[in-house]
Amino acid sequence: MLRNRIKELRARHGFSQTELAKRVGVTRQTIGFIEKGEFSPSITLSLRLAKQLQITVDELFWLEGGDEDE
């Protein structure tokens, strides 16, 4: 499962889901699903999110469940 730190970093930057969604060009619901790990964003969207949250993509997303060790 794809885990992420979007919720934590969004709070740190003081963004609401709506504001972050607007900044990266998606709907609020999409941000919600990504935060819950129920939707895996494309590379383009991941890069946009990482840019807005001032972090690298590999620090923002990681795989949970042993895949990261392979």
Partner: peptide
């Protein structure tokens, strides 16, 4: 089709 998740 506003964004990639809506497309999905």
């Amino acid at each position: 089709e506003d964004d990639e998740m809506l497309r999905q």
